[in-house]
Design a binder for these strands. Structure first.
Lengths: 337, 337
DNA sequence: AATAGATTTGACAACGTTGACAACGGAAGG
DNA sequence: CCTTCCGTTGTCAACGTTGTCAAATCTATT
């Protein structure tokens, strides 16, 4: 009735339980004869090594995924990426949503690491931008990998996965420029919102490198929501742009709607592009041209890095890595009339 | 440098490690004097009980959340509910996305239970509708709680959380009827899609109980997507309905768009309502009147049930529970002209 | 045939915790 | 003063696994 243990297998196979352990761990020094016999018995009893006991005896076999705004679709994509990696390597994932504004994120995490035998942590923005937090974790010798936006790793504290959304914003702007747009509005600038800053930078660079002016009146402040997108669009439309670059798909969806409300057809009168390739981007008509972020892969990569750091003692064997983003061309942007 | 153990605390406090264990587990028979001293030492050393060792010695302290279509927003809401409950009780959550079409879900799960000391499982549709799977898990004496839609628990195999979307669909239909609508189209009927069936049933019941006819031409087949919503709306509009009941918010968003494209203002010419209260419902204009499913609470409740079953030997102490759903009245439905 | 060396196996402790049970000390009852 | 009992504390085994090291067996070399 009870779950079979390594000793049950050993008794059945007529060997010591240590030998079974060796077979389970694929150690070399077991004769083929014994090995096959043990494997048979494992099969027969349907034996599963006890993860818990293993963890206790060996190094930690778990890592934590720490994220902030838990309702974003990208969280779940990342989570899936991490899980798939964990499964492959026999690791366990502990999920940890937090409120980044709270003061105790550090303490909370430290407690987790302390009590759960967690060996590694994957941090996403805005937690990953918190240098203090990172050093804090490092001091408690957790292995840390951060996912950040930016073209370069910001420091050498610990490996980083940097996602080049500046470059992507530039690509997108270039795309609009190549279509022939000259007056492009930028929606969603927000001083405290890290990613809006990067995207604006990419936007700027693209214009400037062609010697085009950046019209301040076409750079609109606002939040990353549908309603704010509508409001910003009313503002932007006063400047008569032929295209709108929205900081994310939600804003873009609001922009599409408001444009039409204001009598502009999309994409005939205004082209509109988004960012993120979220589900919203096909929830609108026309479907949005946007930028895709391969969240699953990014996260899987992060997981692989953390696991590697946990397994090899030498932390410096793991290097930071960059991801670039691709345009997803759909129907919301065309040549200007 | 190393993490302090119960023994380190004991040495510092000058008591046996068993006494510390007692303090940590809040057992009664410790004198106040000793208790405070031990607590001080725990504080001083920043001692954290080792979860792994605890699990090994005692009953399993983990439960699994098994779900299928992992990109839905409701998964993450539920996950958060479960986590919050787990944290409160010192339990650990293991996430398990699966492909319900694969044959080995059972095996996979059995392996998890076997190797990870998992004591309980929370199942969501369509996995939770799979009776065979449930008995399979029950036989391996896991505690199982299923989340299902329906007004009643379908059986007594194991406790169920049943979410009454039939009733909610009826409420919503009644709401439209009360506003004065007589011709209501139903979008998103799909024979193999369990929840569309329930929603249609609620819709029907509402009409029939007022002696109104159910017009077959206004019940439209289709999938739960924006594009399908547009297509279904083109079909439905031929019948000149004054209101549209969409099976979910994505369909409703498509319906809103297509209606306008076809020259009908929303909500002035057609009222449109959704279901699910997903992020999409405020991603459209006007914001959708819809049905809210308290996923966080449902999941937290499920977690509480599983944990209770794991802790008390008597499985039958835990009873199935029903949740009813509430309308979220926003701006997409008004009185007919 | 004897010895060294390599390969294979086993005995045992250890990981950090809890459960079972024994031991201690003091209070109450005779 | 001795017993009984209760509240408090301690000792030890156990959970299922892996690491260490020694024992046993086999192989190759002289």
């Amino acid at each position: 009735m009870k779950k079979p243990t390594i000793k049950d297998v050993a008794k059945l196979a007529g060997v010591s339980f240590k030998t079974v352990s060796r077979v389970v761990n694929k150690e070399a020094s077991v004769s083929d004869e014994v090995r096959t016999k043990v494997l048979e018995c494992i099969e027969k009893l349907n034996y599963q090594p006890n993860h818990t006991a293993r963890v206790m005896r060996k190094a930690p076999f778990s890592l934590a995924f720490v994220y902030d705004n838990p309702n974003s679709h990208y969280v779940i994509e990342m989570q899936n990426g991490i899980i798939s990696e964990c499964r492959e390597r026999g690791f366990e994932l502990v999920i940890h949503p937090t409120d980044s504004r709270s003061e105790d994120v550090g303490k909370e995490l430290a407690a987790m690491i302390g009590s759960n035998q967690i060996g590694g942590v994957i941090l996403t923005p805005p937690l990953s931008e918190n240098r203090e937090l990172v050093t804090f974790l490092l001091n408690r010798d957790a292995k840390v990998v951060r996912i950040l936006s930016g073209a370069e790793a910001p420091d050498t504290l610990a490996p980083v996965i940097h996602v080049d959304d500046v470059g992507a914003a530039r690509k997108m702007t270039d795309y609009l420029l190549d279509l022939g747009h000259k007056k492009i509005a930028f929606l969603g600038y927000h001083a405290s919102h890290e990613s809006s800053l990067g995207r604006l930078e990419g936007f700027r660079t693209a214009l400037e490198s062609r010697g085009l002016p950046v019209d301040k009146n076409l750079i609109i402040d606002g939040e990353f929501t549908f309603d704010s997108g509508m409001a910003m669009t009313r503002e932007a439309l006063k400047g008569k742009p032929t295209a709108i670059f929205a900081c994310n798909d939600e804003i873009a969806a609001g922009a599409v709607f408001q444009s039409r409300l204001s009598g502009f057809n999309v994409p005939e009168d205004v082209s509109i592009v988004g960012f993120e390739n979220s589900p919203f981007s096909v929830q609108t008509w026309p479907h949005l041209t946007t930028v895709n972020q391969p969240n699953f892969d990014i996260a899987a990569c992060a997981a692989a890095m953390v696991i590697k750091m946990m397994q090899e003692k030498d932390v410096h064997s793991v290097e930071s890595k960059g991801f670039s983003l691709n345009l997803v061309v759909r129907d919301s942007a065309i040549k200007p009339a």
